[in-house]
Amino acid sequence: MRFLTVSGPPSSGKTSVILRVIEALQQRQRKIGVVKFDCLLTDDDALYAKKGVMVKKGLSGALCPDHYFVSNIEACVTWGKENDCEYLISESAGLCNRCSPHINDITAICVIDNLSGVNTPRKIGPMLKSADIVVITKGDIVSQAEREVFASRVKQVNPGAVIMNINGITGQGAFELTSLFEAASNIDTLKGKTLRFSMPAALCSYCLGETRIGEEYQTGNVRKMEMEDKQ
């Protein structure tokens, strides 16, 4: 089973890109599974189901979404394998820009859009910087010059990645992206694999449900801002 992790900021077009890739894979008669991770609510599972692919939905609710991802992804891979999927795609949004679901030896894709602004590539952490393939969307509505500047900014923070422009609406470029999916790593299990980058740590009173604000209620892993102006 070929397994790929797809991540990217909210509303960057992850689901649209995956749907277009699914259409291209289905033309090649492939059996596909998708795992959709989200926080509170998603209807995207219905969009996937409509395409006739296997779909699993995971909502992290009150937990950190990426910690939730990493504690569930192994079972998802087993699920895909048991259902004889030839492709399994996980979709998750990197919400704090510091997390990343990418796993060593597993093809990692980051979806980012031209409208998010030229400084956005710098602001996104390992989710973008450690991806193998960076998909840039919404190129049809911005000028060629802005596309070039945006792509060069992405290239600057992840020079080793393959960078592709995909139109999530018309599917332009999706066929080409699919040919890279066909080269994704083939796996049976995630046992023994490691994340490309550690998750941000949080272990403080607020993780355990504290709501009151004030020094005396803060325990555990707490960090303070520098408030004094440096001379």
Binding site: S143, K155, M164
Partner: peptide, 20 residues
């Protein structure tokens, strides 16, 4: 196919806007 510096094709269409 993949180079961002040496793209073969530059595009211009009616739908394109400046956003910066």
């Amino acid at each position: 196919r993949f180079s961002t510096e040496h793209k073969l094709v530059a595009q211009l269409s009616q739908n394109m806007n400046f956003v910066m």
